[in-house]
Design a protein around this nucleic acid. Structure first.
Lengths: 157, 157
DNA sequence: TATTGTTATACTCTATAACTATA
DNA sequence: TATAGTTATAGAGTATAACAATA
């Protein structure tokens, strides 16, 4: 890790969008995705799979529609992800007894393991941010993001 | 605007990823993109174009490579965006005199106008977030995001 | 040799619309 | 009729690799 004083390291000049959140979110997403792909490629799982896996684990028995809403995804988009998780034996689909239209989702023991392994990759991935912000500001950032998420979800109905 | 007490409106349970920034960024990006598309569709410009336009305006004479780095994009990805902006007469490419490999980018007067029009769309787009956070927390969120961006950019070299 | 911009190409992610099976 | 999940399909966004022009 070299400290390179030759880099200007100026904050990006956003111009008219200086007070807008969109461009920043996009940039961060691109950067994190790029890092995440190289980190999780060995496991052959696409970026969003771990998120879905974690959501299933935290909401066992959830339906796919409910899960899609939590993940901010279209229900169709979720099908393929769950397909893959199921094919790898990481998650299970069971028909709900009470409403046979619904799938009841759960994580398998294998899924739990993979989840934890990938979790360390994510943590490593985000380490630069965590290090730069420190524990306190990181927590603050997360809570502000949660409030932002809540706001857009409410706005979109 | 109805206040609907019937909605549980619980914060999403991220489980293992409760302290991770990635899933939240992804979700916000999806939500904002969806809203942004419906907002800017009348102008026929893809989501990222306004960001690039604003960056060009704020950094007149910038090269494409420099711009790509600022926007967090691959230089190849930027070519198509600039192509479109140029085709619509919103931005101009001129060969740099001092280094004839480089393009010197600038925004046309027409581009300035479109930029301002689209800016109002973006502002409307993000209004729910701004309203929910208030001016102070919004500013705080933006500055934390900027620090996060700086951190990942430095980490990625 | 190294860098800027370009092209060709392919892949990931996500959405829309139409379908089925249940309710 | 309405909802949960599925399929088929299409589109936006982005990256990699190879190339030409210039340094």
């Amino acid at each position: 890790m070299e400290s390179d004083a030759s880099k200007p390291q100026t904050t990006i000049e956003w111009g008219l969008l200086g007070q807008s959140i969109g461009p920043r979110i996009r940039l961060l997403r691109n950067a994190l995705t790029a890092r995440s792909i190289s980190a999780s490629a060995p496991y052959g799982l696409p970026t969003g799979s771990l998120t879905v896996l974690a959501l299933i684990a935290a909401n066992t028995g959830s339906s796919q529609t409910a899960l899609a809403r939590s993940a901010g995804l279209n229900k169709s988009a979720l099908v393929g992800i769950v397909d893959e998780l199921e094919a790898r034996g990481l998650a299970a689909r069971d028909r709900s007894e009470r409403d046979r239209r619904r799938n009841s989702l759960s994580v398998t023991p294998e899924g739990e393991e993979v989840m934890r392994t990938l979790f360390t990759a994510v943590t490593t991935n985000e380490a630069p941010i965590r290090d730069a912000l420190g524990q306190q500001d990181m927590t603050l950032l997360l809570s502000l993001l949660d409030r932002a998420i809540e706001a857009v979800q409410e706005a979109d109905g």
